[in-house]
C-alpha cells in the first residue's frame, strides 16, 4: 500500500493489562476512503484497539501511525482530523442538541461563526433539525447516537473511529445509522468500525479483520472470507439431539459445527442432507447462504454473541 493513501497503520502492536494479553502482535492497514471493520466478540480487544488509535491507551510494543502521525506521541495532532463515536454516549445531557455541537466545536478551536455555519447541515445529516433546542436528556437512544455522529463530524474529519456504533439500538434506528454511514463513505471519509454484528460488518465494511482474544484470525473482504472459509450453503438444524444428527448427516456434509442446540451443516449438495432429514417433524431446518457468522464459527468453534 502506498504510504500517502494509508490512513491507519498498525505494526506488531501488543497490549496487556496485568497478565492478560488484550492485543497480541496485531498488524493491519486501512487505506483512505475505506471502511475497515474489527469484528469479534466482547473481550476480543476491539475497544482497546480503537482507543489506542486515539492515543488514549499506549501500546507496550509495536508501532501505530494514524493520518501520518505517530501515535500516541502526536495523537493530539491526528485527533484534530478524527471524529469519534464511542461505545457509550458521552454527550452533555443537560445541554441542548445545538449546545452540544457548540461546546464540542470549541474544543477543536472553531469560532462561533464557523460552528454556526456547519451546525445546520450536521443537524440535517443527523435528522435532528427539529430537535436543535431540545435537551439531550429528552432524546431517544437512536437520536443520541445520531447526535454523537453529528458531533463527531463537526471538525470535518478525514477519519471516523466508531466503537460499536449501533449496539443497543432497535433495528429501525440501526438501519438509519447504517444509511448515514454509507453517505459518509460516499463522501470519501475513512471509517474504522468495531462491531460484533456480522450483518453490520457485511453491509458496511470493504475489508475486515476478525479478532479473537486480541489475535487476528482472518482478514479480507467479507465476501472473500465467506467464500474462502465456507463457500457453500448452510443448513441450520434446531431440535433433536445435535450430536446424533451429526452422525446421521456427516457423510453428506463438508463440515459440521454444533453450537448450543443448533447444528450448522456446510453442504455443497444441501438437497442430500435434506433428504436424510425428511419426515423428521421434530426438527426445524433452515437453508441459507453463508455469512460472516459462519466464518467466525468455523474459525473459532463458537458463535459471536448477538
Amino acid at each position: 500500500m502506498n504510504m500517502s493513501t494509508v490512513t491507519i497503520d498498525l505494526a506488531e502492536v501488543k497490549k496487556s493489562f496485568g497478565d492478560k494479553v488484550i492485543v497480541n502482535k496485531l498488524s493491519f492497514s486501512v487505506a483512505r476512503g475505506e471502511c475497515f471493520g474489527l469484528l469479534g466478540p466482547n473481550g476480543a480487544g476491539k475497544s482497546t484497539i480503537a482507543r489506542m488509535l486515539l492515543g488514549m491507551i499506549s501500546p507496550e510494543a509495536g508501532k501505530i501511525t494514524v493520518l501520518n502521525e505517530p501515535v500516541p506521541s502526536r495523537s493530539r495532532v491526528a485527533r484534530a482530523r478524527i471524529g469519534v463515536v464511542p461505545q457509550f454516549d458521552n454527550l452533555e445531557l443537560e445541554f441542548t442538541v445545538r449546545e452540544n455541537l457548540f461546546v464540542f466545536g470549541r474544543y477543536f478551536g472553531m469560532s462561533a461563526r464557523k460552528i454556526e455555519a456547519v451546525a445546520p447541515s450536521l443537524l440535517e445529516f443527523a435528522r435532528l433539525e427539529s430537535k436543535a433546542d431540545v435537551r439531550v436528556s429528552e432524546l431517544s437512544g437512536g437520536m443520541k447516537r445520531r447526535l454523537t455522529l453529528a458531533r463527531a463530524l463537526i471538525n470535518d474529519p478525514h477519519l471516523l473511529v466508531m466503537d460499536e456504533p449501533t449496539t443497543g439500538l432497535d433495528p429501525h434506528a440501526r438501519h438509519l445509522i447504517w444509511e448515514r454511514l454509507r453517505v459518509l463513505l460516499a463522501r470519501g471519509k475513512t471509517i474504522l468500525l468495531t462491531t460484533h454484528f456480522m450483518e453490520e460488518a457485511e453491509r458496511l465494511c470493504d475489508r475486515l479483520c476478525v479478532l479473537e482474544s486480541g489475535c487476528k484470525i482472518a482478514e479480507g473482504k467479507p465476501e472473500a472470507l465467506i467464500h474462502e472459509h465456507i463457500g457453500c450453503d448452510v443448513i441450520e438444524i434446531y431440535g433433536g439431539d445435535p450430536y446424533q444428527l451429526r452422525e446421521l448427516i456427516r457423510p453428506y456434509a463438508r463440515h459440521i459445527e454444533v453450537s448450543g442446540e443448533t447444528l450448522f451443516c456446510y453442504a455443497p449438495h444441501p438437497e442430500q442432507v435434506r433428504l436424510q432429514l425428511r419426515g423428521r417433524s421434530d426438527l426445524r431446518v433452515l437453508q441459507r447462504p453463508p455469512n460472516l457468522e459462519d466464518v467466525f464459527l468455523r474459525l473459532t468453534g463458537r458463535e459471536l454473541e448477538k
Binding site: L54, M56, R76, R79, P86, F104, G109, N155
Partner: peptide
C-alpha cells in the same frame, strides 16, 4: 461518571 473528560479527549485537547 459523566464521561465529559473522555469526550474532550476525543478532540485535539490534551
Amino acid at each position: 461518571a459523566k464521561r465529559t473528560w473522555e469526550a474532550v479527549l476525543f478532540t485535539q485537547l490534551t
